[in-house]
Structure formats: C-alpha cells, structure tokens
Design a protein around this nucleic acid. Structure first.
Lengths: 119, 119
DNA sequence: TTTTTATATAACCATTTGGTTATGAATGAG
DNA sequence: CTCATTCATAACCAAATGGTTATATAAAAA
C-alpha cells in the first residue's frame, strides 16, 4: 500500500464517528439510515463520513433500490495494521534496549516506576 | 484506550512525514535535527509534527543539553493496531459470508473477478 | 399521481491542519 | 565574552475538516 493510501486509511480511522460506523459494520452490512441512527448529526454529515470511509477503501457501497448498503472491507485496515505491527516490533526492541541500559546503570526507568524527585 | 486518544493516535499516523519519523525511530532514538534531515521543510514545521506525535503518546522526548532526543513508544500504536485487529476479524467473517452467498447463488463477486456488464 | 423515504449535492461556516517567516532562549564552542 | 547551534514560540496564511441548512433526485408507498 502506498503512502498516500495510508494517509487516507489512518485519516479515516482518526474520527470516532467513522470508527463507530466500522464497529457497527462488524455485525454485517447496513444501510445508511441504520448507520446514521446512533449519531446526533445531520444526514449530510453522515454522508460525508461515508465518503471518507469509501475513499480510504474501508467500505463498499451497493445500491439496492433507493437504499445504499454499506459493508466493511478488511483489506486496507489490515495494511494499516501491518504498518503498525512492522514498526512496533522495532520500537519494542529499542524500548527494551533502553530499558536494559537504564537498569544496568541502576537508573529509574521513566516508563515504569515512579520518578525520583527532580520536580 | 479511550476514543479521544485513538483519535490522536490515528490522526498522528495519517501524515506521511510523521510516519517517516516513526520509521526512522525504528533505528533508535534521534535528535530533532537528525529527524528533520530527510524533509524539505522548515524547522518549526518539524517541531509541530513532533508535538503531534508526542500528544498522541507515540514518542517521548528527553532533553540532553541543547539537543532533544526522541524515541518511539510502542504502547499507543499497539492499541491502535489492536483496534484494527479486533474489528478486522469481524469484517473478514462478513466478507467471507457475503462471498459464500454470492458464490452459492452463482453471482459474480465484485471483490474478485471482473464485473459483468451493467456499465 | 402524489407523497414519503433514502440519499446526494451545494453553499456556507468555524475550526483544525500543515506549512511559512521572524524572533527568542538556552546551550555549547571558539 | 561572542558566536553558532538547537530548538521553541508567535503570528500569519491557505487548504482541509467536520459540521450546518436548503434543495434535488430517485425509488417506494399510498
């Protein structure tokens, strides 16, 4: 997945309303009225959120008569998750290495115990 | 992790410059000048990006003399990854179920083969 | 056919975002 | 001490974001 697409996917996931919609879609596809129901928000606002999810490739829309059914597509989210997992592995190594260094030098680790004075 | 924090984490990850910085931090901590080096961008812009990463809890800053050393913290990214992994599991089930349904009804699956006419 | 329902689009607005230049403060080097 | 380096902050700007109301379109229902 290219960087531009990751921008869209992470950007889409950065809003609680959109994450809520994706969570709702875990139960299966839903039409837009159903997706909108939990939110105290105008219909065009919901429409915009859905467009953001669509542009990120996180959902797919199927028109059936006058209703639009939305379902979640796992691919792009997986790739975003993959990005995180890939780098988190290295960050943890670094994290552990710094931890070990601090312990070896008998210093307090700011990421665990309470801090010593210096306030 | 609360929703507000997830907003910050996903929001921080939605920018290629910030993801680049986090990628760089996979090799270990770096001072701000080093982090800034790959980008054709003013120093205050870099400073702002770092603040976004800090507010999301994705990095930690340690001042040593006049230099600020940055290192990545794996925690928040892990939680964001966890959110994705949790829901992706359900989306895949749904995905598979719809797939099966379409196949059972001898229809083409829009997610795989080419689409039939209707253009 | 008329009305209602489901949705989109347009126009607008305030706030946030991502950048800039200019300036300042603290630390290190000469 | 003076100068250079590392970084932050302030003020500004354009574009993007997340919302609104008003209006339009298409399909279903009456």
């Amino acid at each position: 997945m290219n960087e531009l697409k990751l921008d869209l996917v992470f950007g889409a996931l950065s809003d609680a309303t959109r994450r809520g919609m994706l969570a709702q879609l875990a139960h299966g596809e839903a039409n837009i009225t159903a997706l909108a129901a939990p939110y105290d928000m105008s219909q065009p606002a919901i429409s915009k959120h859905l467009r953001v999810l669509e542009k990120a490739g996180l959902v797919e829309r199927t028109r059936r008569g006058r209703e639009h059914y939305i379902r979640a597509l796992p691919g792009p989210a997986d790739e975003a998750g993959g990005w995180i997992a890939y780098y988190a592995k290295f960050w943890k190594q670094q994290f552990a290495a710094v931890d070990d260094y601090l312990k070896a030098n008998n210093q307090l680790n700011a990421n665990e115990g309470p801090k010593k004075g210096n306030d």
